[in-house]
Design a protein around this nucleic acid. Sequence first.
DNA 1: TATTGTTATACTCTATAACTATA
DNA 2: TATAGTTATAGAGTATAACAATA
Lengths: 146, 146
Amino acid sequence: MAEQEQYEELARQLSSIAAVRRDLARVLPADCSPASAIVLTMLRQYGEMRMGKLAELLMIDMSVTSRHVAYAEARGWLERHPDPADRRSRLLRVSPAGEALLRQVSERYTEALATCLRDWSAEDVGRLIELLGRFRNSFDGCRTRT
Amino acid sequence: MAEQEQYEELARQLSSIAAVRRDLARVLPADCSPASAIVLTMLRQYGEMRMGKLAELLMIDMSVTSRHVAYAEARGWLERHPDPADRRSRLLRVSPAGEALLRQVSERYTEALATCLRDWSAEDVGRLIELLGRFRNSFDGCRTRT
DNA sequence: TATTGTTATACTCTATAACTATA
DNA sequence: TATAGTTATAGAGTATAACAATA
């Protein structure tokens, strides 16, 4: 169990991190919003899936997810295929153009982070990733019960 | 130096954290936007300051900061006093009502985080805070040079 | 009837640029 | 002239609610 002051500090740090995300987004290719990048990343990581599943992974409302998907589809970055199990749904899949875009996104994100974190050890980067993952999971489990 | 895969994972984690921030914001008192909360928190933590300094701390444009401050002032949460050193500026200070609001914000943030992180040790919370702080600083230094 | 997804609407946060007042 | 701050405008992201199609 942590102290109250720690929790306040943590809340402040989370606000600051938003600014980092904004800056990082600036390195994205033209037309590729942070939303497109994360949608495509999730689809590549977890494979083809339905809209509802994607919304759940992104932790945003399905209405919002629907718009992000439409945006990415309009640019040819993902495809929607019929879902044999349910005609209300379609299965979302990264297209070849989307794969190419993702390579570019990965390259630029990696370059930006490698530059900023050049003084960091791989161990510390790993620790940060692990703690952020745990934090997200703890919060997520908490939210579901509410 | 870390691996490319680590950097990609880190970028993904940063996206996920945005959802946590949104959820956390839901516990704020009515009328108190996340922006108001962070503005008042900064003013309390660092003491009275000018608009430009506040914008720098928040890492957002001064035009945006100006609106957040106007919003908080309209609700009586902060005061603007003449800056004896420069009549173009005013010094921003948390008002008594703002202090009261901050106590409420702190209470709710703390309760929400304590609930979600009840399984965490104080050491791990401390490590997360420390790594987030270092990360922000590394990124900030990087951005400045660009 | 319930569920999957889409669309309309509104709100928050942000940046850029034009403007005012003072240095 | 340059700087501190304000305001107008525009754009991205999000949520809620109403709706369509299918289960």
